[in-house]
């Protein structure tokens, strides 16, 4: 229990504030299933109490930076990767995630539960990425779905990222929501307002495109 971010224990992070209520983790544990869409990320496999999570949400709602950062820790890598693959540029991705964090913190008062945090902050991020894409305008003044040439950001290893740039915005979004957001097609359908079959067929088409341009 290092009690620092990057450390192993959630309880440690909570203890650090000297908050008496969580001095000893309650004896009764239940495997906490992350109920905000999607798949396993490392922290979720750790045993966690429900009391922990609701305490965390309560403190985050009241504006506690540490509690917010704890929630953020659970999703931050996925957030950055999503932005990176959506926008293709490290700097833009960093800016957009940073904006997302600040907007989320400012309106964290409406957080319903710790479980809902992930989907909610992803929604903010996805909206901001869309705005960012809308800012890539071509000469005729109409929205060009393809991103500008990413320039020096790509090495051989990131051929995939470059190939992503050649997809349409929607195709990229579906893949990013799936891979980094961890959403299933029905959930993506809700976010993008399509039916799940359309999501899957578009993803299939997008992956075919990617495969061709990577030659794999």
């Amino acid at each position: 229990m290092e009690g620092k971010y990057g450390g192993k224990s959630r309880a440690g992070a909570l203890k650090k504030t000297g908050d008496g209520c969580n001095k000893d983790l309650p004896a009764k544990y239940c495997i906490y299933r992350d109920l905000s869409f999607g798949r396993e990320t490392p922290w979720r496999s750790r045993v966690k109490t429900k009391e922990d999570m609701s305490l965390l949400a309560e403190r985050a709602r009241s504006g506690d930076p540490e509690a917010f950062a704890s929630l953020y820790e659970m999703v931050y890598q996925d957030l950055y990767r999503y932005a990176l693959y959506m926008l293709g540029q490290k700097e833009d991705a960093e800016d957009v995630v940073s904006e997302t964090v600040m907007a989320a913190y400012a309106q964290i008062g409406q957080l319903r539960s710790a479980e809902a945090f992930r989907a909610w902050i992803f929604r903010i991020l996805s909206n901001k990425c869309r705005n960012q894409r809308a800012a890539y305008l071509n000469k005729t003044g109409e929205l060009d779905e393809q991103m500008p040439d990413p320039g020096g950001d790509f090495t051989e290893e990131s051929m995939l990222r470059e190939a992503m740039a050649r997809l349409t915005g929607e195709e990229r979004e579906i893949i990013c929501l799936h891979v980094f957001g961890g959403y299933k097609s029905a959930e993506i359908g809700l976010i993008l307002k399509m039916n799940p079959a359309t999501v899957r067929s578009r993803e299939h088409r997008a992956l075919e495109k990617l495969r061709k341009s990577c030659g794999s």
């Binding site: 950062a69 990767r81 693959y85 940073s98 799936h178 990617l210």
Partner: peptide
């Protein structure tokens, strides 16, 4: 397509998160 998805996932994991976006940095900023 599953293996392509996995490739994207793996590649994504290799991209380091900028230091300004780590939870500690965020906590400090907040």
């Amino acid at each position: 397509n599953e293996d392509l998805i996995r490739k994207i996932e793996e590649e994504g994991k290799a991209a380091p998160v900028p230091s300004s976006l780590t939870p500690e940095a965020v906590r400090q900023m907040l």
